[in-house]
Simulated assay, not measured.
Amino acid sequence: MNSTVPVDSLNEALTKNLISFTLSFIINCINGAFVYIFCKSEVFQRDPRYVLYIHLVINDMIMLTASVTLQILTYTVRLSFAPCCIMLLILVTTNKNSPLNLAGMAVERYIAVCRPLHHTQICTVQWAYTLIALMWGVSFIPAISNVIILLITRPLIVFSKNILCFPSLTYNTSHHKTQNVVVEVLLCSFVFLTLIVTYLNVLCAAQAASASIQASARNARNTILLHGVQLLICMLSYTSPFINLTLVTAWPRERTKIFFATFLLTNVLPRLLSPLIYGVRDKKFSSQIRMHFCSKCRKSVVKRTHLKGES
């Protein structure tokens, strides 16, 4: 969620918007392939692990679309207060959803290894959808709180004006800054603690388990470690203000280029890396991808070859 006032030339603005749009389109197409695989297979739809995973993918697609849309709008049109708040509600809520989703996936792996007899009873598809609903509710609270604080602290005339729609520019009171710090610290602490506790418990279970169960425990342990990597990728968006401040202090004339580069590195690219790492690593998902898309590619090649032979 970058926050820059665009002062670029027309060519620079067009180039940046084109790069952002193209990257977001490609990333959403790749992530959309994972959603397509999930929807085509009932095996995935009956597994809470994959329900949570595909929610992470869809959430990242929504967040990427909202983030890039806001960036493009800053170069084209200023929004009135109401549509800006709706866009920011979506952006802030989905931004908080990603780490919570990773925590939920880690808990599911912990139950599968450390409470295997209860796994099928606790971790049902209904449980996964209930957890997703809870995530959205928890993430929506700080997002709507930002709007409420703005309504309380700003004069009514402000809401009739068009504004530059970025979180740090729209929500710029001291109350907003305090709330953001508190929410981010609590959120990151909760998710990190969840990952650490589940990892240590799975590690202990792997050491105490029989040889037949150790392989499953080892996979679960590696999966939770992977969630830690995914969490660090998701947290990159929180580091962009510090990166911007450091680099702009050193190179003030390159301000807009620095902001754009950090926007791509901390907001756009992580929306691809986080789902892609997990989806490609998972054997079931990767096999389904090969089966669906590689088979279609082969059929397409065979069809073109057949048509050339007839001609």
Rank of each mutant, 00 (worst) to 15 (best):
M1Q: 15
M1E: 12
T4V: 13
T4S: 08
A13D: 13
K16M: 01
L18H: 06
I19P: 03
I19R: 09
S24Y: 04
S24H: 07
N28T: 00
N28A: 01
N28K: 02
I30R: 12
N31C: 07
A33I: 08
Y36M: 11
I37F: 10
K40C: 09
Q45P: 04
Y50N: 00
V51W: 14
H55V: 12
M61L: 10
M61N: 15
M63R: 06
M63H: 09
M63W: 07
T65K: 06
T65A: 09
L73R: 07
L73G: 04
V77H: 02
A82G: 07
C85D: 05
C85V: 03
M87P: 01
L88H: 06
T94Q: 13
N95H: 03
K96W: 10
K96C: 11
N97H: 14
L102I: 11
M105L: 14
M105V: 14
Y110V: 06
Y110A: 00
A112S: 12
A112C: 12
V113Q: 04
V113Y: 06
L117G: 04
H118Q: 07
H119K: 04
T120M: 04
Q121P: 12
I122Q: 12
I122C: 11
C123Q: 08
C123H: 08
V125K: 07
A128W: 06
Y129M: 14
T130R: 01
T130K: 03
A133L: 07
L134K: 11
M135N: 12
M135H: 09
G137P: 05
V138T: 06
S139K: 03
S139V: 02
F140K: 00
P142Y: 13
S145I: 04
N146I: 02
N146G: 01
V147G: 07
L151H: 03
I152F: 15
I152C: 12
T153V: 08
P155K: 15
L156M: 12
I157H: 15
K161F: 06
N162K: 08
L164N: 13
C165F: 06
C165Y: 08
F166L: 11
P167C: 02
Y171S: 02
N172D: 13
T173N: 02
H175R: 08
H176D: 04
T178I: 03
T178W: 05
V183L: 00
L187H: 11
L187E: 13
L195N: 00
V197T: 08
A206P: 00
S210H: 06
A215F: 09
N222R: 08
T223P: 01
L226Q: 14
L226T: 14
L226A: 14
H227S: 07
G228R: 03
L231M: 13
T239V: 10
S240I: 05
N244E: 15
L245H: 10
T249H: 14
R253H: 15
R253Q: 15
K257T: 10
F263H: 10
T266D: 14
V268F: 07
P270S: 07
L272V: 07
L272I: 02
L273K: 01
S274N: 10
S274E: 03
I277R: 05
Y278D: 15
G279K: 05
V280G: 05
R281F: 08
K284A: 02
S287G: 04
S287A: 10
I289W: 15
M291L: 09
H292E: 09
C294Y: 09
K296F: 13
K296E: 15
C297S: 13
K299V: 03
S300T: 12
S300I: 05
K303S: 01
T305I: 01
K308G: 00
E310W: 14
S311Q: 15
